[in-house]
């Protein structure tokens, strides 16, 4: 295609939008809303996942042993655990360590009070392994496996933290899919209508173009351009607003809830924005292109 033809189609596409500015704006607004929500959920989900990843290294599984299990047996179990692929790290806490830790925790400065127990370690059977997994998703499986090992008395693990987060992510995901789906349908409907109105407006012109010998491709081009512009603008507006919103939101949370900053870490906007922008632009332009293409094809057949 010639550059001049490209500019001509671009100009006609812009003309289409200007002529029917209200419909076009409504279409842009719905595409924007759609992509805004997409970006918002994208940011939340990806950050929750990031937090989970971080927690995974702090939440472990603790394994206790049968009364009086001898040290060799315990060592053997430890080796077995270490041999697994999904296990990242295993640390051993002896009964003495456990007692020392407990003393510190319960009696604090008044270590004297604990002296009475010294003879007979109340936590004699509290030797344990603490296991950290590569991926918390495997936790249930590993726990079941641990319970099946001979000599293992008890397996302590935290279902709540990881699974809570995971299911939160799932709920957010499903909810956002639903809302985005509805908005997407509205956006498609509105773009399709906008293109139809433009096509009706240009009916006469399209007829003349046909008789002059313009290709179908040439006749459709302005409408597809119109759709792409709607999609592009509809993607850029939310991207720009999300960029600044995200930055200030992270800044706000970090300064206002500095206690949390040890617990939660946000991904910097620079880390997620390129992916978000690429997805949003593809989404916007894709919707604009396909909807306008199929709408105009339907109209010009007759």
């Amino acid at each position: 295609m010639r550059i001049s033809t490209f500019w001509y189609c671009l100009k006609q596409g812009v003309n289409n939008i200007c002529r029917n500015i209200l419909f076009s704006l409504a279409s842009i607004a719905t595409v924007s809303a759609c992509i805004f929500l997409f970006c918002l959920f994208f940011s939340i989900v990806i950050n929750v996942q990031y937090v989970i990843k971080n927690t995974e290294s702090t939440v472990g599984i603790t394994v206790f042993f049968d009364d009086g299990l001898d040290a060799n047996k315990i060592k053997e179990i430890g080796n077995k655990i270490k041999a697994r692929d999904d296990v990242k790290e295993v640390t051993f806490t002896s009964a003495e360590d456990a007692w020392a830790e407990a003393k510190q925790e319960y009696f604090g400065d008044m270590q004297d009070l604990a002296e009475g127990f010294e003879e007979d370690n109340p936590l004699a059977n509290s030797a344990s392994y603490t296991i950290f997994l590569n991926d918390l998703v495997d936790q249930d499986q590993v726990v079941d496996w641990l319970k099946g090992i001979e000599g293992v008395r008890k397996v302590n693990y935290s279902k709540t933290a990881a699974e809570g987060m995971n299911s939160l992510n799932k709920v957010i995901g499903v909810l956002s899919m639903l809302i985005i789906g509805v908005l997407l349908a509205v956006a498609i409907f509105l773009i399709s209508n906008t293109i139809s109105v433009a096509a009706a407006f240009r009916k006469n012109e399209n007829q003349i173009m046909k008789l002059i010998g313009a290709t179908n491709y040439m006749i459709r081009a302005p409408f597809v351009v119109e759709g792409i512009i709607i999609g592009l603008v509809g993607a850029c507006i939310p991207l720009i607003s999300i960029y600044f919103l995200y930055r200030s939101a992270v800044g706000y949370v970090v300064t206002k809830f500095s206690i949390l900053s040890g617990l939660f870490q946000f991904l910097p906007v620079e880390a997620i924005f390129p992916y978000m922008a690429a997805t949003a632009l593809t989404l916007g332009v894709g919707i604009g292109f396909f909807v306008s293409f199929f709408t105009i094809r339907k109209h010009l057949k007759v």
Binding site: M1, R2, S4, N204, I208, M209, I212, G213, M218, I219
Partner: peptide
């Protein structure tokens, strides 16, 4: 093709109406 009712594009001037026929077949500027 020439019609009884002319069928010109009302939103474009004389020059553009004629140039239109060249543009839509992809002629060079």
């Amino acid at each position: 093709m020439v019609f009884q009712d002319f069928r010109l594009l009302k939103d474009r001037n004389v020059y553009e109406n004629v140039a239109f026929a060249q543009r839509v077949i992809g002629a060079s500027t």
